[in-house]
Write a protein that binds this DNA or RNA. Structure first.
Lengths: 375, 375
DNA sequence: TTGAAAGCGCTAACAC
DNA sequence: GTGTTAGCGCTTTCAA
């Protein structure tokens, strides 16, 4: 390996000027090659790449950002929790962003309150991100904020205005509806609902799906119990529900809550699924191994993240163009052992047409539209 | 609210020069105030802050980074998985970094192989981070890399050299030992081990802790079974272990694997904990609600992250000074329902010649020694 | 198809 | 205590 460059000893990292010198071209040409711009002869391109390689040249992102105004990085506002859902979404976002050649900056908000979100967004903007992803924030309260870059709301409706506002749902409404329909199909006369915190949009969406499934069958709508996503809150709800002998089916808005719920139910002497059926929400694979294995609906984290980032990238790089339409992820119901036909009653007709894939129901309003929420 | 600034209409974001003009000072003084440098009169400081506030001024990080060479951001190389452990560590890191006033950049590696880690680290360096956190990488293979910023290895030994290499453990060795001791204390003559992938340092550390606990009591060391952290791999191990009637206690290197393991055990007719005791590793709270509730050891994710970032910040901001010593996090054993004394028996009426390809060594080699892998 | 000059917004070093 | 003068390393005009 011939040492072509004069001195590279005491000096620090090579700059584009060094590459230019070694390749025998101008700095601008180096820049062209590095940015894959047209109008560079193959010969020159090759020489530049070779020189960069030889020098171990690494482009300085800060300088590029300063000069161009574009940072090639996107920021994500996430919840500071290690839950399966949140973590899965973050992993999916990271991968999609990296595949796009962008860098990822993360800011968590302890609890997704408006101030927290606003602060996180401002901090991200200050860091110079080209786009922002707000993942599963709360919906309550107004975030008064105006951001000058595109913002993607993943699994939630827009909470503030931005240069370009995008929304990609995770199909929570349809998933909740499928979960409830599954229970109804089994022959349960109605389904109780253990919801997430009322302030979360994710809660409202699931609640709405459950409600619509009930309404479609003319089933009675029992009062909603509210948890906080934690297994402990599921347990507390279970204690409450176990005392009500009319309960035969429960749809919990989260797997962890469902597990806590089942725990309390069984402790109170109610068998699952013989006496009471339980469906969770998320799709954490570990719950295939508990007793009873948890029936649940799988959230399309990866697909939603990929789709969302695709839209965001488009909005960043081609602000003028109209965005290609978002494809709705499929509904995936995972039937395991925590659901069964209701007790006493004779087994229902075998017409078990589980709402799998396909939007499954008469009308499923897309996320962002406010289906009748109570709260 | 008096509009002091001349025109702010069509123009874009205000710069430090605008603030300087409004406050009637020089740009450098604005810079001083914004960086909390000394030698600025309170009066001037107040005026500058006021002007900045009024203009809605936001400092441009890219420009600062370019000018100063410091980026006020740290990068983390994580595993692209949504597991409880990984996610908890990341959340802890994010919080600690944010509290230090730094920004966080994240790059995941699909599987922590040397190339993946090297690529992630280079990408982070290119992005101009001031420090890097490598969280739970694999240990096998050499990462040939020289980084010019401090690197913190969290829960793993240094995998490559850097300007300043820091290491903070999560006490895995002590935790594994505590888990095994708990089983031994219960009266089990020995404890089997379901390990993580051999390439992971986390696996080796836990393995070593288990091994040392056994050795300290002179207990026989059964062959190690290797999983991949997934509940499915735990299940597979359980099928295998259930066939061996001499097994009365198992220490699994992860909660999820423990759950899969218990599943298989019970399916094979072995009761937990009556016939076989199982201890997990991590501390995911949801497993307090399964049947049986999982006994486990809790990893001090937050404490480790906080301590690690503290060290890293110190290395970044005061490279000369010696680092304050790291405090070891406490060992936390969470005893729940999956462990009990061994089954009622007066004498261990069993010839242990089931799977006798154990090495049966009486000493505990430190991590780094490769355990007999099965795969 | 390539190059020369002029900054991007900030901080560093040195004056005053 | 405060201001002045130069850049940081890259991309952008615009010209050749």
């Amino acid at each position: 390996m011939a040492r072509v460059v004069g001195r590279s000893v005491g000096s620090s990292a090579p700059r584009s000027a060094d590459v230019a010198r070694v390749a025998g071209v101008s700095r601008k040409t180096v820049s062209r090659v590095l940015n894959n711009e047209p109008y560079v002869s193959d010969e020159v391109r090759r020489r530049v790449l070779e020189a960069a390689e030889e020098l171990g040249y690494r482009l300085n992102h800060a300088a590029r950002a300063l000069a161009s105004g574009r940072n090639r990085s996107i920021g994500v506002v996430a919840l500071g929790t290690a839950g399966y859902g949140t973590a899965s979404l973050l992993v999916g976002i990271e991968k999609a962003v990296r595949d796009s050649g962008y860098a990822l900056r993360v800011v968590n908000t302890a609890d997704g309150d408006p101030e927290g979100i606003a602060g996180a967004v401002m901090s991200l903007r200050e860091q110079g991100v080209d786009g922002i992803v707000v993942s599963e924030p709360i919906v309550e309260g107004e975030v008064s904020l105006k951001v000058d870059v595109p913002v993607l709301f993943l699994g939630a409706p827009p909470a503030f205005t931005s240069a370009r506002t995008l929304t990609v749902g995770v199909g929570a409404y349809a998933l909740a509806r499928a979960a409830t329909d599954h229970l109804l199909d089994l022959g349960h006369t109605t389904v109780h609902h253990l919801a997430g915190p009322g302030r979360w949009y994710a809660s409202k969406d699931r609640l709405a799906g459950w409600r619509s499934a009930l309404a479609a069958r003319g089933a009675h709508e029992p009062p909603v119990i509210e948890g906080d996503w934690s297994p402990a809150s599921g347990y507390a709800a279970g204690v409450e529900l176990a005392a009500d002998s009319s309960v035969t089916a429960v749809f919990a808005a989260g797997d962890d809550m469902a597990i806590g719920l089942i725990h309390a139910l069984r402790e109170a002497g109610r068998r699952v699924p013989e006496d009471i059926s339980v469906v969770g929400f998320d799709g954490n694979p570990v719950f295939a191994h508990v007793t009873p294995p948890l029936t649940t609906v799988r959230q399309p984290f990866d697909a939603a993240a990929r789709e969302g980032i695709r839209l965001l990238m488009h909005a960043i790089e081609e602000p003028e163009t109209d965005l290609p339409p978002a494809s709705e992820p499929p509904v995936e119901l995972v039937v395991r052992g925590s659901t069964a036909p209701p007790p006493t009653r004779k087994a229902p007709a075998r017409g078990r047409r589980t709402a799998s894939r396909s939007r499954g129901s008469a009308h499923a309003p897309p996320a962002g539209d406010g289906p009748p929420t109570t709260d």
